[in-house]
């Protein structure tokens, strides 16, 4: 059992090497494991003209849109979960500020299906959906085919193969075998669909830890290009077993983002004003970390013997 080559690098290097102007980019995570640390580094490195793809743009893409990184958004639900609107996104769509933003819209199932097709390297994916809805009229990429066996009409969506996918996860080994528990979202599909993959984890563990619990591995090292260790890298979203969702921040974002100037100030303080995630967390303060840190609830484990 020889250890594979290490892909561990810093966030700064990973973004500089693997995310380029004009790329299509997926940073997934459905409420859980959203890699804000990577988004902030992309903002700091002033990437432009990105096509941002995500089921729920969430605050992460609201921040990237406000910072002028995006020219297009591919999405299926664009709100601040449990709170209200994404104001930077709405300013971009309704007023073209700071720059116009093209939209390509699906439902959740449609976008999940696009990533499934991308991961399987098929040109499109089939689903029973959209009959009776105006969504296909709004998005000409939602089409249909007749089933060759039954003649039934089925909806289709094209494969999504992003240039880069960035996945946040609880832990990985140095070569990128990545383990996730709690809500999976579409992290696996997004990783397999991409041309380049960056995995960002709360902890890097030895290969033995991965081999000791192989059923928890969601993304294998063979699809991973870089591994970054960035504790608290998903804040204000969460990492099951590490820290809770910062619901208070999601509410605060409503006031921060409602006004362009206050959002700009927030970016200046919390993104441009720090050199990485450690600095961001320091700025947030120890009290907030204490409030969010997960309480232990350890699973009992299983017998892998034979």
């Amino acid at each position: 059992m020889t250890s594979a080559a290490s892909k561990v690098t810093t966030m700064r290097e990973a973004i500089a090497d693997l995310v380029h102007d004009g790329d299509s980019l997926v940073i997934e995570g459905f409420t859980h494991l959203i890699c804000f640390a990577a988004a902030h580094e992309i903002i700091r490195q002033r990437r432009r003209d990105l096509t941002l793809c995500r089921l729920t743009p969430d605050l992460i893409y609201d921040q990237m849109i406000a910072a002028g990184c995006a020219s297009k958004l591919v999405f299926s639900w664009a709100g601040n979960p449990g709170v209200g609107s994404l104001h930077a996104l709405r300013r971009a769509v309704e007023k073209g500020q700071p720059a116009p933003l093209a939209l390509e819209e699906y439902s959740h199932f449609g976008l999940v299906a696009r990533l499934s097709a991308g991961a399987a390297r098929l040109p499109f994916w089939l689903l029973r959906d959209y009959d009776g809805s105006d969504l296909p009229a709004a998005n000409p990429l939602i089409r249909s085919v007749d089933c060759p066996y039954t003649g039934t009409k089925l909806a289709t969506v094209p494969a999504l193969n992003p240039d880069v996918t960035i996945v946040h996860a609880q832990r990985a080994d140095a070569s990128g075998n990545t383990q996730i528990w709690g809500l999976y979202g579409v992290q696996k599909e997004a990783a397999f669909a991409a041309k380049r993959v960056i995995v960002v984890v709360e902890e890097i563990v030895g290969e033995g830890v991965i081999r000791g619990d192989p059923n928890r591995t969601v993304i294998p090292s063979i699809v991973v290009d870089a591994v970054v260790c960035e504790p608290w890298g998903a804040h204000p979203s969460y990492a099951q077993g590490y820290y809770d969702r910062d619901n208070r921040f999601y509410v605060e974002w409503e006031d921060i983002s409602r006004d362009e100037a206050s959002l700009e100030r927030w970016l200046k303080d919390f993104v441009y004003g720090v050199d990485g995630r450690a600095g961001y967390m320091q700025l947030l303060g120890a009290q907030r970390q204490d409030r969010l840190r997960a309480k232990p609830l350890i699973s009992s484990g299983v017998n892998y013997g034979f």
């Binding site: 089921l55 709100g79 769509v93 819209e105 959740h108």
Partner: peptide, 17 residues
């Protein structure tokens, strides 16, 4: 749009299935 709302999420397929 006068107001841009969040969009479907899973609503379209829930309504169908």
């Amino acid at each position: 749009p006068k107001v841009r709302l969040p969009g479907s999420g899973g609503a379209c397929e829930i309504a169908i299935h």
